[in-house]
Design a protein around this nucleic acid. Structure first.
Lengths: 168, 168
DNA sequence: CTTGGAATGTCAACAAGGCTGACATAAATT
DNA sequence: AATTTATGTCAGCCTTGTTGACATTCCAAG
């Protein structure tokens, strides 16, 4: 913070040059495409999209979660999420139960069919991630995670950390 | 490849456990949201979206690029790109010139107004990336890039590498 | 106890930006 | 001359964002 008087004048900060940063930006762009490519292909077959994947992922991650919880994590409007949730419920992939403590809430669970699709999706995505991790090596993976965590918005980092802690 | 008989039996591969992979997947998801958040805010003001940002970014990156080139990099249909390009041309942010060597082609350039918006967008995005890089440190950045490069599809890696080489 | 908000979820309508298919035009290639 | 290539355009569809209106449920203040 104190040493950033000139634009990258210090040669120990070469990884902060505009060119390095630009490469990072493009790496992020191209890699995210690969990251979603396999699930996208699977989802397209049954007429679903990325929004369905996100809902399925986080319901699987926290069974019994409420619509409001999901809204906070996914960062969309409740109307948008509701449409996706409705098709998943109608198609028998998600079960919605009236909350016991507060009957305004709906607790969401994957059905067997939902869990099966979740496994199919996450297997495809994990296979690619695993291959990338194996190719890059453990230290690269640690760096990858450190940079991504620093890039998150505060709110999202909270959700991410909550998930990280919830399993050993 | 040969040693992967059992599920993560080797303790030197702990970074390849399903749990580690899942953390990587969620890190990617949450970080990408942060990555696009600042440009999204700027674009929303002038009524543009992420599609406009992508077009502007890559036209700025390779001035004079053709429509076909852009299609290959962005991975969308020409109809979809055309709609975005048309608004950018009509709004005076992009200039389209008939190709000299091959007059079927259109060479695309940013106008002054286009370059100004590009600077505004990339400054916001670079600031966040720079902060993340600085916080994570040079070795983390190297690992970040290695993992992302391994995660790209072959085609996308080609485009990425082409860009990387095009500047020292 | 009742009543007025606040929280939660649903329904309707609209826009952006993907997609496919069909077709036109001009230029290059064979 | 015929074909292929590059680009643009029209029409129509889908997913997934948005806002607005509204129903239900809970809770707290009177």
């Amino acid at each position: 913070m104190a040493e950033s008087a000139g634009p990258a004048a210090d040669e120990t900060l070469l990884f902060l040059t505009d060119d390095q940063i630009r490469k990072g930006i493009e790496a992020m762009f191209f890699a995210y495409r690969g990251f979603t490519a396999d699930p996208d292909r699977i989802l397209a077959v049954q007429g679903y999209g990325r929004a369905h994947h996100r809902a399925i992922h986080f319901i699987n991650r926290s069974p019994g979660t409420t619509v409001n919880n999901l809204l906070a994590i996914l960062g969309v409007t409740k109307q948008s999420l509701n449409r996706v949730l409705r098709t998943l419920i109608d198609d028998g992939l998600v079960r919605s139960e009236v909350g016991t403590r507060d009957r305004r809430e709906r607790n969401l669970y994957l059905t067997e069919a939902g869990a099966a699709l979740e496994r199919e999706l996450s297997t495809a995505q994990r296979d690619r991630m695993r291959a990338a991790f194996r190719q890059a090596g453990p230290e690269a993976v640690a760096g990858f995670r450190r940079v991504l965590e620093a890039m998150m918005d505060g709110d999202m980092r909270r959700h991410y950390m909550r998930f990280r802690e919830s399993e050993s």
